[in-house]
Design a protein around this nucleic acid. Structure first.
Length: 467
DNA sequence: GGAACTCGCCAC
DNA sequence: AAACGTGGCGAGTTCC
């Protein structure tokens, strides 16, 4: 049996999870402090906002027409219902969906609704967003709070890639990118009295771990020199010679999240082009673009930049992206591409593979699955190994600082301020050096970034902290 | 009245 | 040749 051949690997993988779950159980027991009074106050405030937005929506012509259209139906109108909205938009009104759901029905998500360009629906979208904050996050914290603490679970037995997960409440999806959502929710979470929250995360961990598998020399060079390859792609896609971070930051974000990462996960130019045009550039998907269209970039608009480079429609943007994709996989990251093929062929032949961390993957996988799983899993295992050693170090040193959570490539601490410097020093050593001593296959440098909150400050107040 | 499903959205 | 990876969770809906 395959299991017998890899007994040694599987045993060490088991050892990691055995020690890992003990360290995570301690973090669960510690828990994170919540401000129940704040949550109650905030929930009431959000409810008032929701009522205001919904009242405006109820007075709209759109709503009265929608309501009329449901005459004679068994269930009465419910503005929270995606299926009712979809029925009305794509059935009754016969609008053409810009996007379909997994089961082939017209989508009613933010992207699809926005493209329909029905201003009255904006109130509904705003209200839905607030409900998410109130009902998922704030209500979840309140429900799970015991004596002013939440104790999120950290599981190691639920994810097919052998990553971890969290629930009740989920500690790993607290709003971060949207500023208002971030503030509203994270202000509910606090350190222990007199303490401060510290978050240490690995920079570019998955990209680096993928490199440990494929060992592409160009990627290795980027990592060793700290070269920003997202910038190279930004310059190519938008044909910019002089990159000015102040002006072109939005284009770099669009490139990184709309092209480079999707390509790494196995997406291809057509999807990326559609997504970049509509979501990141806010440009029309049909017709010839005009000056002054799309997102603002400094003093001009994104269409001005693309037109200057001779890209004048979504169709020509797609052709352009195909060329960049070809160059990406045939030249720049050729060895990476070859590894993907080899890895996939090997899995097809054998029906299983082993991760760098000794985990045996033998389920039925698609091509993208087989390529992504071992990377995602092993990246998390580095974090878990660091977390185990951190837990032991805090215990050994008799420190008052605690680990309260884990977010895939990050550890969250509730720090006793006099120990801050020491914690950072020990952790930097564990995360960047010790794990590489233990796992020699990590042949790339690892780097830790830190974010710190003020003493007695909430999780919303975290700031970059140079270590 | 609960299980199972869909959809949408938050994180990495 | 094929076409974005992993979760948790709330609300609505359908089925038993």
């Amino acid at each position: 049996m395959v299991q017998d051949i890899f007994a040694k690997d599987i045993k060490s993988a088991y050892g990691l999870f055995h020690e890992g779950i003990l360290a995570l159980a301690l973090a669960e027991r510690q828990g994170m402090r919540v401000d129940v009074t704040y949550i109650n106050r905030q929930s009431e405030r959000i409810t008032r906002q929701i009522v205001g937005l919904e009242t405006q929506f109820y007075f709209s012509k759109f709503f009265s027409d929608w309501k009329k259209s449901r005459k004679g139906k068994a269930t009465k109108i419910n503005i929270n219902s995606s299926s009712q909205l979809g029925e009305y938009l794509y059935g009754t009104l016969e609008l053409k969906p810009t996007k379909l759901t997994a089961t082939g029905k017209g989508s009613t998500d933010v992207e699809a609704i926005t493209q329909l360009n029905i201003p009255e629906l904006n109130k509904l979208l705003e209200a839905k967003k607030l409900k998410k904050l109130r009902d998922t996050y704030l209500a979840g914290f309140l429900r799970e709070a015991v004596d002013g603490f939440i104790h999120p679970f950290f599981n190691l037995h639920l994810v097919r890639t052998f990553r971890g997960s969290s629930n009740s409440p989920n500690f790993q999806n607290v709003p971060k990118r949207d500023k208002v959502a971030m503030q509203t929710v994270r202000q509910a979470l606090y350190p222990r009295e007199g303490n401060q929250l510290l978050e240490l995360d690995y920079e570019q961990l998955e990209v680096k771990i993928a490199t440990c598998y494929h060992e592409d020399p160009n990627m290795l060079e980027f990592i060793r020199t700290g070269h920003d390859f997202h910038l190279d792609f930004t310059k190519e896609i938008f044909q910019i010679d002089a990159y000015d971070p102040k002006v072109h930051k939005v284009l770099r974000a669009a490139t990184k999240n709309g092209f480079v990462f999707p390509e790494f996960y196995g997406d291809y130019y057509k999807n990326c082009a559609t997504y970049m045009v509509s979501n990141w550039c806010n440009l029309p998907s049909v017709g010839i673009w005009k000056a002054g269209q799309g997102i603002e970039v400094g003093t001009e608009h994104v269409s001005d930049i693309l037109l200057r480079g001779g890209i004048k429609s979504a169709t020509s943007f797609e052709r352009h992206l195909k060329e960049i994709e070809d160059d990406m996989w045939n030249n720049r990251f050729k060895v990476y591409a070859q590894w993907k093929e080899r890895w996939w062929k090997q899995y097809q032949k054998q029906g299983y593979f082993l991760s760098k961390t000794g985990f045996l993957f033998k389920s039925v996988m698609t091509r993208n699955d087989a390529i992504n799983y071992p990377v995602q899993g092993a990246a998390f295992h580095i974090l878990l190994l660091a977390l185990i050693h951190a837990t032991k170090a805090l215990e050994r040193e008799g420190m008052k600082t605690r680990i309260v959570g884990q977010i895939h490539d990050a550890i969250v601490f509730d720090v006793y301020p006099p120990e801050l410097k020491k914690v950072v020093r020990i952790m930097k050593c564990i995360m960047e050096n010790d794990v590489r001593q233990i796992w020699k296959w990590i042949n790339v440098p690892l780097k830790v970034d830190a974010e710190l909150c003020p003493v007695d400050g909430s999780w919303a107040e975290k700031q970059d902290y140079k270590i």
